[in-house]
Structure formats: structure tokens, C-alpha cells
């Protein structure tokens, strides 16, 4: 039987990546390995090149130098056959910051676009069914499927974007600031949804975020981008031991401490509840 899914350990490998715009260097010799089945949070100051890194990995940005390998296939060269490059695109899903839904299509039609593109042999009935359950999996009410993006709230638009990202049952999921602009309840619900889908579908998630709660709640490891490269990839508790000014300021600043405290409180309450029961 042919293996349809990637079975190696590192679905995303970036080696020595360099990116520069008009002489302004964004990345200098950046390297990163993402483990299979983890949620990797990517943090860094504004303008540190988090989104550029994601765009380089998914092939929207041609890097100046460096090697990028996604699901075992090299992306940065031009040497790979075109067919493989297209195939690899069906194995990841991307949620852009604003959702980037096609505004003239309904939510369900948005989900159907990648299905139509990659698997034209799937007939209308099955495609509609798939679109409908993907909408449900993304936590949207069934009636949202027939709505246009302009009729949805910000949080629902993100979920609709997630439904489209999941349309082809990808192995890799890229999320660009999924909780930005959501209220705390919506953000927490989206975090829970990400975790749940990652568990159920066995996804590897590359998650760019500014949201400390998201980092504490759902990320297995966190990659820190500073000084034009990835300075550390580790769990938050390990990162806190690193003596780097940006890391210390980020996690030990007022907001970082608040997120940490909230997490400890929640744990303590869980323990109490356990003892009570």
C-alpha cells in the first residue's frame, strides 16, 4: 500500500533562510524544524518577519537563499517537478490573517473551491456533503454555510477560513494570527477548536500569534524570532530560562505574567475540583 501521509519526523524543515526586501534584511540564516503532530507557536516583535517566514514556507515568497523542505519535498529550488509542487499544496491548509475568503462565494462554496480544483472527480452531492460537515467541524452553525463572508462576524469569518483551510484534509495547517481581533471568549473558543482539530485530525500546526494566552494554552513548543533568525524553539518553561532581553521582556512583561498567572489559577481550580469530586 502506498503511504499517502508523511511519516517522517519533521514535516517542515527550514535551513539557512535569507530574505531581504530592497536591501532591508528580514531573515539572516534562519533555521527551524517543526515536529510532526505538534502545535508550534511562532512569536516575534512586529516586523520581525513571522508572516514572511510563513509565506516562504508555503511558496508565496521566493527566498533569497536557503533550503525549505515541506513534507519531505524541497520547496525553495525550482528543480522539483511542477506536478509535485501542486500536489504538495493539497496537503496543507492556510488561514490568512483576515480570513481571505472569496467575497463573492458563500462559506460552503469557499470550502468547495479547493475540492473542485484538486479533485474534480468528486461529484456535486459528495462535495456539498463535505462542505457541510467541514463547516460544522469548524464550529459554525449549519445556516452559516449559505451565508456570504460579508454577512458573518469576525470570529465566524475566521472559522469559515479555517473550514476552507481544512477542505482537503491537510496534514499541515498554517494559522496567521488566528485570534487577532477576537474577543477573549471567541479567542479561547478558537484556541480550543484548534487544539481539538489538531487532536482529532492529527495535524501539524504552524501558528503565528501575538496572543500569550494562545501560547500558554495550546502550543506544544514556541519558536522565537529575533535578530533576524530563530533564537530558540522550546516549551515556554524552558524559554523562560533563556537570558535574552526580548524573551524576558515578552514573557515576563505585565501581559506575559498575567497570562501565566491565569493559567496557574485555572490549574489550581481544576485540582480543587478534582479533590472535591
Amino acid at each position: 500500500m502506498t503511504e499517502a501521509h508523511y511519516t517522517g519526523n519533521f514535516p517542515i524543515v527550514v535551513e539557512g533562510l535569507c530574505n531581504a526586501f530592497d536591501g532591508h534584511v528580514i531573515h539572516q540564516d534562519l533555521s527551524l524544524k517543526v515536529r510532526r503532530g505538534e502545535i508550534l507557536g511562532v512569536v516575534g516583535g512586529s516586523g520581525s518577519g513571522k508572516s514572511v517566514l510563513m509565506r516562504s514556507i508555503i511558496g508565496l515568497q521566493h527566498p533569497a537563499a536557503g533550503e525549505i523542505e515541506v513534507l519531505g519535498q524541497s520547496m525553495s529550488g525550482g528543480g522539483a517537478p511542477a506536478r509535485d509542487e501542486i500536489d504538495i499544496r493539497s496537503r496543507w491548509g492556510v488561514l490568512f490573517q483576515g480570513g481571505a475568503l472569496f467575497s463573492t462565494l458563500t462559506v460552503a462554496e469557499n470550502v468547495e473551491v479547493p475540492l473542485r480544483e484538486f479533485y474534480p472527480e468528486i461529484d456535486d452531492t459528495l462535495r456539498h456533503e463535505i462542505a457541510r460537515y467541514k463547516v460544522m467541524l469548524s464550529g459554525l452553525p449549519p445556516e452559516a454555510a449559505a451565508k456570504f463572508p460579508s454577512e458573518l462576524s469576525g470570529g465566524m469569518r475566521k472559522r469559515a477560513g479555517l473550514a476552507r483551510a481544512l477542505a482537503l484534509d491537510p496534514e499541515l495547517l498554517f494559522l496567521d494570527e488566528p485570534t487577532a481581533g477576537l474577543d477573549p471568549i471567541g479567542a479561547a473558543a478558537f484556541d480550543a477548536l484548534t487544539r481539538e482539530l489538531q487532536d482529532t485530525l492529527g495535524l501539524t500546526v504552524f501558528l503565528i500569534t501575538h496572543d500569550l494566552d494562545t501560547l500558554y494554552e495550546i502550543c506544544d513548543r514556541v519558536a522565537v524570532i529575533a535578530d533576524k533568525r530563530v533564537i530558540a524553539v522550546d516549551t515556554i518553561s524552558e524559554l523562560l530560562k533563556i537570558d535574552h532581553p526580548w524573551i524576558q521582556e515578552y514573557f515576563n512583561g505585565p501581559r506575559g505574567r498575567a497570562a501565566d498567572a491565569a493559567r496557574h489559577r485555572a490549574k489550581a481550580m481544576d485540582k480543587q475540583a478534582d479533590r472535591g469530586a
Binding site: 458563500t106 457541510r132 445556516e143 449559505a146
Partner: peptide, 20 residues
């Protein structure tokens, strides 16, 4: 894996209109 996926789909479906 199969059991997990199948249980996640419980209650999905319905046949409301998805296109205008």
C-alpha cells in the same frame, strides 16, 4: 484514528441549502 474521526462527524450533515 478511524474511530476518532467517525465520532467527530456524529451529528454532521443536514441538508440545508449551502448555495444561494
Amino acid at each position: 484514528m478511524a474511530a476518532r474521526l467517525i465520532s467527530a462527524l456524529q451529528g454532521a450533515g443536514g441538508d440545508g441549502d449551502i448555495a444561494p
